[in-house]
């Protein structure tokens, strides 16, 4: 089974590659959209900033390939961190449009003295919502490892499809699912057994 990792040229995707390579799958790093063809699973790790990332995706033809493979053909997709945020129409971090699979805008955590520190970094609880397929093999309560300054608000389209919520002074969407689309704000590849179990669930639907 080919698992393609979307590479848009901004650096370190190694941890995600390392984690996926532990499983009985063929991990392929895809530098262009054409390299995603034939993948049974597509993983988009988040590196860098929103605008630079979206420009990288477009320059390498990933946006069109993702639309075709993920949206039209239903190849299961997992977006990690920024890879979750790209699924939205835009972000306060920049001005580039996102992939627009969900109609909402990613926001910045308030950086004021009375609010907790930004970035939100460390282990935090994720509360599963509904029958979350991603978490069906995990026993709550569980923690995942987060590093981010921007978040998906628990509102509208995102709230309707949220399958995991996290609280960092405010509730935000830690994970969402819609059909074969999934996205997580945390880093499963850095979240020990809970993360590896979630990746196993995504890869093998079991």
């Amino acid at each position: 089974m080919k698992v393609a990792i979307v590479d848009y040229g901004l650096g370190n995707i190694r941890s995600v590659v390392n984690a996926l390579e532990c499983f009985e799958v063929d991990v392929v790093v895809a530098p262009t959209g054409a390299d995603l063809d034939g993948a049974a699973r597509i993983v988009l790790p988040g590196v860098g900033s929103f605008d630079a990332g979206m420009r990288g995706l477009r320059a390498r033809g990933h946006d069109a390939a993702l639309d075709r493979l993920v949206r039209e053909r239903g190849v299961p997709y997992l977006g990690i961190c920024l890879g979750l945020q790209f699924m939205f129409s835009g972000s306060e971090e920049g001005s580039e449009p996102g992939l627009g699979w969900f109609d909402a805008k990613v926001r910045r955590f308030p950086d004021v003295p009375e609010a907790p520190k930004v970035p939100h970094i460390g282990w935090n609880d994720v509360r599963p919502v509904g029958n979350a397929a991603l978490f069906r093999n995990l026993v709550p309560p569980f923690d995942f490892y987060f590093v981010h300054s921007y978040y998906v608000p628990n509102e509208g389209d995102a709230a309707r499809h949220a399958c995991g919520l996290c609280n960092y002074d405010i509730d935000f969407v830690a994970a969402l699912e819609r059909d074969t689309l999934a996205g997580v704000q945390f880093h499963p590849e850095k979240s020990q057994l809970a993360g590896m179990k979630m990746l196993e669930t995504f890869l093998f639907n079991r």
Binding site: C22, L193, K197, E200
Partner: peptide, 13 residues
């Protein structure tokens, strides 16, 4: 952190 043990097949680790 909750560090529940899960059995996971990672044949290529």
């Amino acid at each position: 952190r909750n560090s529940t043990f899960y059995k996971i097949a990672m044949p290529r680790r």
